[in-house]
């Protein structure tokens, strides 16, 4: 056994543990099942290995060995492709699809989490070799803390206020508050819609939020998450029963119309507030003004 055996083992174990920790499964996530998990834990293990051996190779002045990190980059870009392809395929068979923006967000998260694992293992081994195992453990705690911070994004509740409105019909037009949702012709369908439908108005808290919730991908993510959590009154062959989100052009509010199987207003509100703000949907038009003012 060389002097590097324990530091390397330590780095790999902590790195893999971080990946498992970051692979928490909840209702909106993929993978939900064992095989999906195995893939990601295995890739996390490889990532941990790559991050760990970087330090000994620097200490041994084997600088060419560092180039294998470029290998890691291309390896994990494939993870993103794999996730994107799988989710896109599955999306065709969802009653309420996730939407491309949401899928891209999930795929990016999977890729970046592997880099967080590399970073964690790197720091752990560094801590172990520079000080002792205690240094390694402290480095691990710091790295896991940073990873947790980096991996959790914002929630919709931070940028919008959610308010319940009962959907109503004005002639054949379905409205949530004053926002037009769609035209439903048949009285029979209208009855169903009023019976199961729920309406919510998302009121943006600032100008940046207005642009973010205007994004179609973000709106689809809301519909998907709510339908996933509360069920959806819908089937193939009933295209009239479809959850929709439309925008008020005057003030940027978004009217969300959903058809949950469980009509619980408070629960639905909480779920909407917990919907992640998608990285790809976030807009910050005000940021430029702020920078100009600072100058």
């Amino acid at each position: 056994m060389s002097e590097y055996t324990y530091p390397i083992l330590f780095g790999v174990v902590v790195g893999t543990a971080t990946r498992i920790y970051m692979l928490r499964t909840d209702y909106r996530q993929y993978p939900t099942y064992l095989h999906g998990k195995i893939i990601h834990v295995a890739l996390g293990f490889i990532a941990a290995g790559l991050g760990t051996v970087a330090i000994p190779s620097i200490l041994e002045e084997e600088f060419t060995a560092i180039t294998f990190l470029t290998l890691a980059a291309s390896q994990f870009r494939d993870v993103r492709n794999m996730e994107r392809n799988t989710l896109n395929e599955l999306d065709n068979y969802e009653l309420v699809p996730r939407g491309k923006t949401y899928i891209e967000g999930i795929a990016i998260a999977f890729e970046s989490r592997n880099y967080l694992v590399i970073f964690t293992s790197f720091l752990c081994t560094l801590g172990f070799l520079l000080f002792n195992i205690l240094g390694g453990i402290i480095a691990a705690v710091i790295a896991i803390f940073i990873s947790t911070k980096l991996m959790s994004g914002g929630r919709l509740g931070e940028i919008v206020e959610v308010e319940y409105f009962e959907p109503r019909f004005d002639g054949p037009g379905l409205y949530v508050d004053n926002i037009y949702i769609m035209n439903i012709g048949l009285p029979e369908r209208q009855k169903e819609v009023l019976r199961y439908g729920m309406g919510f108005i998302l009121k943006p808290k600032n100008f940046d939020a207005r642009a973010t919730i205007a994004n179609l991908g973000q709106r689809q993510a809301i519909l998907h998450d709510v339908s996933n959590a509360l069920g959806v009154y819908r089937d193939s062959g009933t295209p009239a029963l479809v959850p929709l989100a439309k925008r008020d052009l005057d003030d940027g509010r978004v009217g969300v119309f959903i058809l949950p199987q469980e009509n619980d207003i408070e629960k639905a509100k909480k779920i909407i507030e917990k919907v992640p703000t998608l990285e790809n949907a976030i807009r910050m038009p005000k940021e430029r003004e702020k920078k100009l003012e600072e100058r």
């Binding site: 054949p172 035209n183 439903i184 012709g185 048949l186 369908r189 295209p239 009239a240």
Partner: peptide, 13 residues
């Protein structure tokens, strides 16, 4: 109602 189901479209008035 029947046509809506058969054609898989939405009936608008």
């Amino acid at each position: 109602t029947n046509l809506e189901a058969i054609l898989d479209g939405i009936a608008h008035s």
